[in-house]
Each structure stands twice: as structure tokens, then as C-alpha cells.
Computed example of a mutant assay.
Amino acid sequence: IYWYDEEREGYAERFNTETCPDVCIPIMESIEKMLPGDQLYVGSEAWNHHAGVGVQFNNTEKVDKAISKRYGQPKDLSDYLKTAQVLGYESWRAMYEAHNRNFPKATGIIGWMHNSPWPSLIWQLYDYYLNPTGAFFGTKKACEPLHIQYSYDDHSIWIINNELKSYPDSKVFIKIYNSDLTEKLSKDLTVNIKKEKRERIFTLPAINNLSVVYFLKLSIEKNQIVKSTQLYWLTTNKDIFTGEHFWYYSPLKTHADMSLIRKMPGAHVDVVSNVQRINNTYYATVKITNSGDYLAFFIWIKLYNKSTKKIIAPVFWSDNCVSLFPGESIQIKGVIPADFTDGDIIVKTEGWNC
């Protein structure tokens, strides 16, 4: 909500040359390279050494608090890092989406920052080892040329089209589900999407008997081809600011409560993958199908070298950190320069609950 709140000093207006939510914690594979074994925990001396400079940034306590207050206390480092990716995804996506919507009042934004020049815990979409964070994929999603999005302040649904192409008679699907996947809203629209335009197309009505955590799914289809799709995990408990302002953050009095996400039922996905090398490039195709009865949440695809067991980076994915409802499938493509690996490649998926 911060990016939509006009009372916040850094909300989406004008041209912001340096800002970010600062939720850019690397994945476990990078953390294990960064820290010695006896320092492999949040808040260790080595951990804080890889944070920022100055009392404002020399630890991750503000991120730690946001994780535990919003999503519940992680049980271990692996759980902490997994939760940090989810928080980073939604935080960075919201930042860019707010600027999408508020143009031309908001003329531009430079997220701080793209990548780190050394092994770091902050300020990066992908880390020193070229592994992306959840923030990277949230940013990638928000900045797609044709995009459907939700506004956290007034519950409006917008289509942002930055393409030099119109999409007449496009189908838009808006659905809300309770945490048990009971459908609470279903709205189908036909929209003439104009080139280089942004448009409010719908505002969500008040809905009775929502679960504390619920899901909003948005999608655009043209000729039965999905052009943009989004999943938002939302809560009936909202963020409430204290009213204090600091140049580097705005403290919260009450955090939105997403902790029920930790109690998600298990889901099952089927994964079919193919990796082939053509000249100096590997091409991966991964099809994921939710064959279970519950939402498969925040599925992350990773590639590993079969011989060394080490993660391969960089991989240029068409999408990642995806969520699938029962029966849904998605096909994702990845491109890997051959210079960054040799030998056979193993495809693995890691989901929040699958």
C-alpha cells in the first residue's frame, strides 16, 4: 500500500531516481556461498557484514520484522529465505505497478538496484552470483508490456498497454477465491485494449465472508492465448502506518496478516522438462501442471549441473515463481549461455506447498 499512499514521502509520483522496498535477500544457494558454515544464520556477524553501510542498513532487522509480522515466524533459515522471496516479489511488483498506474503523475522510477557488485543481502534484483531474487520476477511481471494489475488502495483493476499495438475484443477474467478456493467473485469482461494506453476497467466490490487471506486472479486473453496473468495474495487485515516519516523507511503500527499462507494444504504438480543444446546455447522448456486439489503456490524453477550438483546461473526465464490452480498448466522457457555450464542439466521445482 505504501506506493499508493499519498501521505508517504516516496509514493508513486514524479520521477523517483533511487528507491526500492529493500527486500532482496538471496536464495539459499547464494547464501551458502556467501557465509561460512558457523555464521549461516540470520543476524550473525558475517550476515550483517553483507548488509549495508551505516546504522540504517547494517543489518536486516526491518526485513526480518516484516517477514515475521506479515507471514509468521520462519522456523529456520531455509523457511526465512523462502518467505523473503515471496515478500520481495509482492513488494517490488507493487512498486512498479503503482508507477504504471499513476503515469503521467509518476513519470518514472529507477529501482535501487539492478545487481550487486559483491555478495550482498540488500539492494539487488539478482545477486553477485547471478541468481535472481523473488524481487526480480515480481519486477519482470509488473514491467511486462501488456499488463493487468490490481491497485492496493482503491481495489481497482487496470490494464497497462505499453505496446504499439491494440488488442480489440480482448477477454478479461477477474476471480476471487477464499483460502479454501471457494469462489467469491467471477467477472468476465470484453475490453478494447488501445495501444499505449492505461485504463481502469473494473473496481472490486465489497465482498462478504472473505477469509483472512484470499486470492485474486486476473488474466487477459486474446484469441484464447493468455497475454497477461496475475495472482495476488491479499488479506482482510491491512497495513497501518505509524505516521512517522524517515528518509529511508516508513514504520508500520500494524502489519497485514498473511500468516495463514503457512497453513496452506499441500499441492502436487507434474513437471515435464526438456533441455537441448543448439550451438553455444542451452534451451530449457518446462511444463508444470497442478494435478492436485489445492493451489500450488509460488513455484520456482531452478537448473542444476548434474555432475557438480551446483545451481546454474544465469538462466533467462520467460517466467518464474508461478502459482497454479488445480488443473492449470503453464509452459516456461529458459535460455542458458553454454559458457556458464557444461554437462547434463537437471531441472528442479520448489514450491511453497508442493
Rank of each mutant, 00 (worst) to 15 (best):
I27G: 04
P104Q: 07
N100V: 08
N279S: 15
F103D: 02
Y129N: 06
R200G: 04
P74C: 05
I27M: 10
E244A: 13
I311H: 00
H49P: 00
W233F: 14
L295E: 09
A84Q: 03
E7F: 12
I148Q: 04
E97C: 03
D127S: 02
R14N: 15
S91A: 15
G10F: 15
V315Y: 12
C321H: 07
L125A: 06
S68W: 08
V55W: 11
G54S: 07
V23E: 13
L81D: 02
K238R: 13
I27L: 09
T254Q: 15
E6L: 13
A296F: 03
S228N: 08
P117A: 05
W123K: 10
T289W: 02
S120K: 07
A256D: 03
S259F: 01
P265Y: 13
F325G: 03
K195S: 10
E6G: 11
L164V: 10
V213R: 07
N59D: 15
R200S: 07
I278Y: 12
K82N: 03
E45P: 02
W352I: 09
I148G: 01
D154W: 15
L303G: 05
Q230W: 00
L146H: 00
S219N: 12
D5A: 15
V269N: 06
A142S: 11
Y96V: 10
I1L: 12
G343K: 04
N237M: 07
Y128S: 03
S78H: 12
H99Q: 03
I193Q: 06
Y80L: 05
S151E: 14
M95T: 02
T190W: 04
T229P: 00
N59M: 01
I207P: 06
